[in-house]
Write a protein that binds this DNA or RNA. Structure first.
Lengths: 209, 209
DNA sequence: TACGCAATAGCCCGAACGGGTTATTTTAAT
DNA sequence: ATTAAAATAACCCGTTCGGGCTATTGCGTA
């Protein structure tokens, strides 16, 4: 089944281009395309992804993000913009946008962005990514809890919290399953737990993660 | 003039692959490649970009970031990792990394990343970008898709996060293990996970707990 | 140099888990 | 009154996990 897409973009020429571009690939289907948030919400039908212009008459794209998300929380939203300006980037992210790309992006990049957010990732242009990272730098450090875990054990602990099986970890770390098994047993000993579920709980509670 | 690149990666096979890959393009030149931060710093010569493994014997890649940056502030650093784990991402960014990509990335993506940081942008995989964005997002707006779990399912979810086995739960809830089994399977379906460890992670991240 | 620790690897075994399927009863909503 | 959803229960089957072992290699450091 193809990925369904909604579009909100007031510039009719660009809107049509998007529809045309996206429709030309069988993996993607444009379910609807409107020039305003108001019209989109009125005639709303569920889609996998929405391409949302930031500068819109009436409700802005940024204001619209939570409105669409409350219709369907799993919906992914990619913002379209002309400028990579700090303020809008931050606001869009705070409101729950999943991607932030430039209108002048190549068709390939736009389709990539759709695919990336659909796959659960985020889609940012390199410059936007840099600015997003810049916001994070002045953050305070968090409490490095004791945890007598060795580096390797910490590594494996992380993998456990990502739901991996011992075998997958073994492949990923270029070691045998038995070794993974051993590390896990050592982790259990140190944290005094007896199952993965428990170790994950502990990891979160003790902020090892 | 081509972009000069330094590499720090302890896994010799992968290091050689990188050298080979990058050298095969005239736009990029590998100036040096070492298996450890210590050796790299000892024989350091200026480059435009450094590819830096996170998990290294001795000084870790993350600890090395500021050391390289103080040699040359304009230097761009791309972290190489097998994991997209929150902690390392945040630490790397705070220490001044310009990119964060997976070792399993395709050659094209790796070269893209180099080009992007060289051009002044940041290079993040979609999943890393998502996590970086998540750090910026206030908890309040994290309206995570509070799954449609039934009361009984929520109850069992809690018990799972307390590390109980199905049998213990069954006794506690006065139902059979098979029923517990069923509820858990339904929970897995709804949360789209496949193990207790994953369900615990999800429960914490989405504040179902 | 000897000791400890981390990381690696293997073996065995039983218990627990995850996935698929079907079915009955109760409760809630329409 | 009919339907839908939730809770209950069972069966089968293969896989993974957890625990208890031993053992080798390499790296620091006392």
């Amino acid at each position: 089944m193809s990925i369904s897409i909604g579009i909100v973009e007031d510039h009719s020429e660009f809107r049509q281009s998007l529809v045309y571009l996206i429709s030309s690939f069988s993996d993607y289907t444009v379910s609807w395309a409107y020039p305003s948030v108001e019209e989109a919400l009125e005639n709303y039908t569920e889609t996998d992804v929405i391409l949302l212009d930031i500068n819109l008459p009436g409700l802005s794209g940024i204001e619209a993000i939570p409105l669409f998300k409350q219709e369907c929380p799993d919906l992914k939203i990619v913002m379209l913009t002309i400028l990579e300006d700090d303020y809008n980037i931050l606001e869009a992210i705070k409101n729950g946008a999943d991607g932030y790309i430039l209108k002048k992006s190549t068709p390939v990049k736009i389709l990539d962005a759709i695919q990336q957010v659909y796959d659960g990732g985020a889609a940012l242009t390199p410059m936007v990514a840099r600015q997003v990272m810049a916001f994070l730098k002045p953050e305070a450090t968090k409490t490095e809890s004791q945890a007598h875990l060795t580096p390797r054990e910490k590594e494996i602990l992380v993998l456990i919290t990502q739901g991996m099986t011992n075998e997958v970890m073994a492949v990923k770390l270029f070691i045998s399953v038995q070794t993974v098994h051993n590390h896990i047993k050592n982790i259990y000993d140190k944290l005094q737990v007896h199952s993965r579920a428990q170790v994950v709980v502990k990891a979160f509670k003790e902020k090892l993660i």
